[in-house]
Design a protein around this nucleic acid. Structure first.
Length: 579
DNA sequence: CAAATCTGTCATACA
DNA sequence: GATGTATGACAGATT
């Protein structure tokens, strides 16, 4: 099989993955979205190195150092290399929601308004889009939650689904480590902190802003705290959140999650040697999207059926095998082998070695054998722990002593084609063929024996021949089944890898669209917020107010301090739950 | 010539 | 219990 080729293809995949990665990041929000300070990033890295202890066992410590140096580590070779896209990497790292600095906030908030190209009439539609995106996000988070067995608090299912932010910095750092180190099994650990729930922002609703026709928001958002959703940095702030008003990136957490997830995805792809292009080609070749269903016909369970057919064929082979085949075995399993050979020929390109094995194992007809050079050895002579008398008498005269006419050559050839048991039978003057001895049903076999007056030695030999012959066929069938199992397992692996590649591609696509929608949400948020005016007609300060989505479907403008309190509560919860 | 593979056989378990 | 089958283990033959 193509294990080696898969391995070598993995390096080529890295390039593809890099391209994909670059595309995705380029597709993402601009720098202003992630414009956090490098200093903060480094703090988060350090913090992660310390706080992430409970996750440290899942990724090697060397990855942390590599991250700190903005190095990427090849998941397979462990080789470190400078990040190829410094801007991208930094944007990712800067996207870590944290105690962001205020100067960037105003711009990030107001710029969409100033440049606003979308008419107000698009707002509703955009909200609808937002809702669908959030639903998708919730699905992903839920999936991750189930995979990491990290359950949300029972009383707060909705907010759990959509809570995103509190520990995303740690998250992302971990993700970067993972992206550097690789680790399929750790792929989903990315999401664990995001499953942490946000409490329902119930009490403090100040300014109902969005009116009645947003019920669909309610169904999808639940009582998501928009402030928490959009201002994770505030929520996350541990040291600097008292450092004055600021307008965090509303979508930092979301975007970070998507991007970092993608990084880990790419890393996973690198590590696994998964090649999306090859996989898609495979898919086209096989023209089967149902990977495993294909296997169902070859799975070990199917083997039992083939065994059934083989047993039936072997029993029925008494007629067919009663031809002049001196090699009494290799009768059973024939039909199955043929069908399987066909399948191999049409389906599995890389299975030639095994296919040839099958060809060798599925022989039945000695006439065919004689034409096939690679089967010449079938008639080889073994030395057995048989009764010496039988062996001695069965020995052929030395060929050198014989004149070799054509007939004698033929006879010699036939002798060589004969099995040892046939030689023994001939030496013991058994009056019927080994084929009959072996393949006749018991009744006919006994009937045959009763027709002749046979010595005890003859009867014993006949019984041995029958036993050995049957066991020989059984061994051949057994080996063939074993090979079948191996082939099916390899096919299973191939199909699973194909499925995995497809799912990964779908995931990348999903994340890409998700990121785009998040950008939309961000601009919408900024647009809505920027249009709000207080009683004096002045805009609200984003450092003092935030929009929050209430449980009843309305969007509220609440003071920042309240969102901070909520954020702290949310931050504490998961820690408590971990114990 | 050594290693890998193929093949037949035996022992054993099971139906 | 006899018979047949499945399979691991072994050894000789072959590549």
């Amino acid at each position: 099989m193509g294990w080696e080729s898969r391995l070598t293809a993995a390096s080529a995949d890295i390039d593809l993955i890099d391209i994909l990665w670059r595309q995705d990041i380029d597709l993402g929000a601009g720098r202003e979205v992630f414009d956090y300070s490098h200093r903060q990033k480094e703090q988060d890295v350090d913090k992660e190195l310390q706080d992430g202890g409970e996750r440290e066992d899942t990724w090697a410590g060397e990855g942390a150092e590599a991250l700190a140096r903005d190095l990427l580590v090849d998941g397979e070779t462990g080789e470190s290399f400078p990040a190829q896209f410094p801007a991208d990497v930094s944007s990712i790292t800067e996207a870590v929601p944290s105690e962001s600095e205020s100067p960037t906030l105003q711009n990030s908030l107001l710029s969409p308004l100033l440049t606003g190209t979308e008419s107000p009439f698009d707002l509703e539609q955009q909200w609808q889009d937002l809702m669908s995106i959030m639903e998708m996000q919730a699905m992903e988070v839920n999936t991750s939650a189930s995979e990491i067995l990290y359950s949300a608090p029972p009383g707060d299912p909705l907010s759990t689904n959509y809570s995103l932010a509190p520990n995303t910095p740690i998250n992302q750092n971990v993700s970067l480590h993972q992206a550097s180190l690789g680790g399929c099994s750790q792929d989903f650990s990315l999401f664990s902190p995001e499953v942490e729930s946000l409490p329902v922002a119930s009490s403090s609703t100040l300014l109902p802003l969005v009116p009645s026709n947003s019920t669909s928001l309610n169904s999808t958002f639940g009582s998501t705290n928009l402030a928490g959703l959009f201002f994770p940095s505030q929520l996350n702030g541990t040291a600097n959140d008292t450092s004055g008003p600021e307008l965090p990136d509303p979508l930092g957490g979301l975007l970070d999650e998507a991007m970092l997830d993608e990084i880990s995805l790419m890393d996973l792809a690198i590590e696994e040697g998964f090649n999306p292009v090859q996989a898609s080609q495979l898919e086209e070749e096989f023209d089967s999207d149902s990977g495993l269903s294909l296997d169902s016909s070859h799975s070990p369970s199917s083997l039992s059926s083939s065994e059934g057919s083989s047993s039936s064929s072997s029993s029925s082979a008494s007629s067919s095998a009663s031809s002049s085949f001196s090699e009494e075995g290799a009768v059973g399993y024939s039909s199955d082998s043929e069908t399987l050979d066909l399948e191999e020929a049409e389906g599995a390109v890389g299975y030639q070695p095994e296919y040839s094995k099958f060809c060798r194992m599925s022989y039945q007809d000695p006439s065919q054998l004689s034409c096939l050079p690679y089967l010449e050895h079938v008639g080889h002579n073994h030395t057995y722990n048989m009764a010496p008398s039988a062996l001695d008498s069965a020995d052929l005269p030395p060929p050198s002593t014989l004149k070799k006419g054509s007939k004698e050559k033929q006879a010699d050839f036939l002798d060589k084609q004969m099995s040892r048991d046939e030689h023994r039978a001939r030496a013991m003057k058994i009056p019927f063929t080994n084929d009959k001895i072996i393949n006749l049903p018991v009744e006919e076999f006994n009937e045959l024996l009763s027709k002749y007056q046979l010595s005890e030695a003859q009867l014993s030999l006949i019984r041995d021949i029958r036993r050995r012959g049957k066991n020989k066929m059984a061994a051949q069938n057994c080996r063939k089944r074993k090979l079948d199992t191996i082939l099916n397992l390899e096919r299973d692996v191939e199909d699973l890898q194909r499925d995995k590649a497809r799912l990964l591609r779908e995931k990348v696509e999903f994340l890409r669209s998700l990121r785009q929608m998040k950008q939309k949400v961000q601009s919408l948020y900024q647009e809505v917020f920027g249009r709000l005016r207080d009683e004096n007609g002045r805009p609200y300060s984003p450092s003092q107010y935030a929009l929050q989505y209430a449980g009843d479907g309305s969007v509220l403008l609440i003071p920042r301090t309240m969102t901070d309190q909520q954020a702290r509560r949310q931050e504490r919860k998961p820690k408590d739950r971990r114990k």
